[in-house]
């Protein structure tokens, strides 16, 4: 079942849409600066297949980039980010509205091979935390080693921030992080981040 997202845009609600103003107001500038925003409605496809099987190569062709096989790594194209979630599991992230196209391409790539393609676009929303202090904000609730020597652009991790499980995807070295969080936890995580950025 596909959803024509644009025709129904007036009916959509992202988990943090109502917080947009508060998130924007929390921005701090300067050397200790930090910004927080929701990037709603990103296309997200959960892909599971055998990385050594023929479908993996077809998927790579369909996506325009190889599926990352290094644990915790991200492969990015102009339109997509492909996040390693497990040895046979990836999250393909694209623009709002792109889910049907990506899903179709991945299903074709999968063909008769065992595996799965599941649209999880509405399962998680995305919080972007960026700025010179972004790392120290995260470190208040995340036990991962986020130092540039251990983590950086092109790296992702499934971990917990403030006891909330999420997918952490570092976008750039500023640093900017995307926190892909289940919709049910989004409000709590946003509240926690707003509190931590105020520190």
């Amino acid at each position: 079942m596909t959803v024509d997202g644009f025709a129904l845009a007036h009916l959509r609600r992202s988990p943090l849409g109502h917080l947009a103003d508060r998130l924007a107001a929390a921005e701090a500038t300067g050397p200790g600066g930090v910004r927080l925003r929701e990037i709603p409605f990103l296309a997200q496809l959960n892909l599971r297949l055998d990385p050594a099987g023929p479908a993996a190569a077809r998927a790579a062709e369909a996506l325009g980039a190889p599926l990352p096989t290094l644990a915790g790594s991200v492969v990015a194209t102009a339109d997509l980010r492909v996040l390693w979630l497990g040895p046979d599991e990836w999250l393909v992230v694209g623009a709002d509205g792109a889910a049907p196209t990506i899903e179709h391409a991945l299903r074709r790539a999968l063909g008769d091979e065992p595996g799965s393609v599941v649209d999880v676009s509405a399962n998680r929303t995305t919080l972007e935390l960026s700025g010179p202090s972004a790392r120290s904000v995260l470190e208040q609730g995340c036990s991962l080693d986020l130092h540039p020597r251990a983590f950086g652009p092109g790296r992702c991790a499934q971990t917990t921030v403030a006891k909330v499980q999420l997918v952490l995807d570092q976008i750039d070295a500023e640093p900017s992080y995307r926190l892909l969080v289940r919709g049910s936890f989004a409000q709590y995580l946003a509240d926690w981040l707003l509190d931590a950025t105020g520190e």
Binding site: M1, T2, V3, D4, G5, A7, L8, L11, R12, R13, S14, F41, S121, A122, N123, G183
Partner: peptide, 29 residues
């Protein structure tokens, strides 16, 4: 309203009942 749905006829009450599942983006609408 145009929203696609997956509707199940299941009941946890013994009554005639339907569970209407939609993408959570449209859950409130």
């Amino acid at each position: 309203n145009g929203v696609p749905a997956r509707i199940c006829r299941i009941s946890f009450s013994g009554e005639l009942a339907y569970e209407i599942n939609v993408s959570s983006w449209y859950g409130l609408a």
